[in-house]
Design a binder for these strands. Sequence first.
DNA 1: AATAAATGTTAATCTAGTTTAACATCATTT
DNA 2: AAATGATGTTAAACTAGATTAACATTTATT
Lengths: 194, 194
Amino acid sequence: MNHKPLLDYINKYINLTVEEETILISKVVLRNYLKDQYISQQGDICKSANFIISGCTKTFHVDMAGQEHIVMFSVEDWWTSDLGSFISQTPADFNVQCIENTQLIQFTYDNLEALYTALPKLERLFRKIIERAFIASQKRIIRNFSLTAKERYLIFKEAYSEIEQRVPQYMIASYLGITKEFLSKIKSQIIHNQ
Amino acid sequence: MNHKPLLDYINKYINLTVEEETILISKVVLRNYLKDQYISQQGDICKSANFIISGCTKTFHVDMAGQEHIVMFSVEDWWTSDLGSFISQTPADFNVQCIENTQLIQFTYDNLEALYTALPKLERLFRKIIERAFIASQKRIIRNFSLTAKERYLIFKEAYSEIEQRVPQYMIASYLGITKEFLSKIKSQIIHNQ
DNA sequence: AATAAATGTTAATCTAGTTTAACATCATTT
DNA sequence: AAATGATGTTAAACTAGATTAACATTTATT
């Protein structure tokens, strides 16, 4: 099937033997979602941790006023899930929705727990992955406090230029924590270099 | 010495034998810092991961305008360090400073790496600790986007009432991402219930 | 090709939170 | 007890970004 991207990714963190790779592959499922389909929904228990082979997802929270707030976009070679819901098997705070047709490799909760036992090396892998995610999240909090919306947009553009091409602007505004109208204004300011 | 709080804490996540506890203790150092002392400084490489036995620290970033932004407070039974700097041994984005006299247990980078090899169980421990930290961080991003400053303050008060008692108000304002003057205004609004 | 739906822009008005600055209170040191 | 420094309050003027609403452009559907 199409597990190579996952195995290549894992081998950047830890080394698996061919037998270990076989065990791992036996416990995962390859799935296809269409654009707009939900992988996981706010209020439900998030059933899988997902590694993206192709496509793009957004992870977002709908607040009490009905407003969407995007916490992350995920593309090829990234993970997507509501981690809080997944690890504690409690109702999710976030929706995970495909914004392109998306192919991913799913780890269910029980299968991942079984894999941790069968392949203790995976503890290290996921420790390292989550360390990085946590660090990025802390830095984002600081950027949100210390930078203006324009500065944050320019950093986003620089860091995730491919994502910017693939995603409608009103979603980028949501990710940056501003309205689509204000992002529009920022872009026109940049064009007329003010 | 005074390792019991750390061992009790660890035993909530994983079970260590007495021999394993001995190995762990042999690789850590108990240290005392005075109020206002820095455990780690922005620009330096963060040399330790620290478990707090007693006291309180703040982790903050100083931006280009010289403004302080607090990302977290840490008290007894929590960890404190610039994780990004620590795990990649690169210059820190954050300062970690004691806001009370603080006693803590330090894991240096090399000792922690050695411990991961000697006691692979610790990978699971730190995986779980960081999972929780990441989840809290993601939720905070959403709260910062979807709630007003007053709502965020009330949630902080509810969740961390003991910290509120121990820390000056201007630091709480910094943690909430607002000015001390505006926090003052919010508090007076709450008193006169508006 | 025409229509509808989704996405993006512009501009006026409004507001949550900042800035500045003066003053008040509390704690610590001499 | 006085003096100094740290912390907290109040109020007026200001601004980054939100809201509303009308319109423009692009994309998808018939």
